[in-house]
Amino acid sequence: MTGGSTALRLSGVSKQHGRGPQAVRALDGIDFQVAQGSFVAVMGPSGSGKSTLLQCAAGLDRVSTGTVRIGEVAVSELDESQRAMLRRDRVGFVFQHYNLLPGLTAAQNIEVPARLAGRRANPAVIDDLAARVGIVDLLRRRPAQLSGGQQQRVAIARALVTGPEIVFGDEPTGALDTAAARQVLTLMRDLVHRERQTIVMVTHDPVAAAHADRVVFLADGRIVDEDENPSVDGVLRRMSRLEKPRC
């Protein structure tokens, strides 16, 4: 990856659910970009549009207006099958509840995206990913034999197995205790800073957001604030200002 390149760009993006007087505008003219090799957190009050932003950015949902680009690919101009191929080949996902297959070992779970693409992952790639996320000794275990933090490490390795241009995290530490969450966040930050992986993470947790290079704040479907040097206290102050009118 080259410095200064853009991994993700949203230009004039709006998303409307429904029609007529009952229509809900979940995103309203979003302009947002993420540099390659950076870690961006997205925060906002409940109903601010965080999840919709992630879904539209990742090609999981179509925008109503505007354009979404991952690298040079105009995601918003692709049909459903093309978006599915893009997600399979160029995008990684890490979810709150891991979504590991209980009957498979950790190694087999990591390989799932490659299998879905009709190919087998090189065992050396699995071993390398396991070393990168700290689960070398756990590859033969099934999810029930792993702690929450270990399962999320497997999920991160799975997200990386296709060599994605960008990884999207949807509350990736939401189901973890404090210690495990800190370990997973440190891992994600290291992947960005040491390996130039690009990560966009939706979170409600100021501690999680403070691990990012930059935090973007949403309210009523619009970007209303940013913090390029986030701290827990700074994120809390900004969130408090956004949430006060809703109290």
Rank of each mutant, 00 (worst) to 15 (best):
D127I: 00
E165L: 10
L185Y: 08
R140W: 08
R140V: 04
T203N: 13
V125R: 15
A121D: 05
T178Q: 15
D220E: 15
N109Q: 10
A157W: 08
Q183E: 14
T162L: 14
G163N: 13
E111S: 12
P113F: 06
V125H: 14
I156T: 14
R153M: 00
L187S: 02
F217G: 04
D128Q: 13
P143W: 05
R153Y: 04
L146E: 04
G149L: 11
A219L: 08
A159R: 10
R153F: 05
A209K: 13
P123Q: 02
H211R: 07
D177L: 07
R132L: 11
Q108N: 06
A210D: 07
Q150T: 00
A157V: 08
A180V: 01
I166V: 15
Q145L: 14
I126K: 09
E171H: 11
R141I: 00
G163E: 06
T186R: 14
E111R: 00
T105L: 04
P172G: 13
A212I: 05
Q108W: 08
P164D: 05
V112W: 02
A212F: 13
L104K: 14
A209R: 15
T162C: 13
V133P: 05
E195Y: 15
D128W: 11
A157Y: 05
L138R: 12
R141P: 00
T186N: 13
R132F: 03
P206S: 00
A159H: 11
D213C: 03
Q197C: 14
G174N: 13
M188V: 03
A210F: 04
A124V: 00
T186P: 06
S147P: 06
D127Y: 02
D127R: 15
R120A: 11
T203P: 09
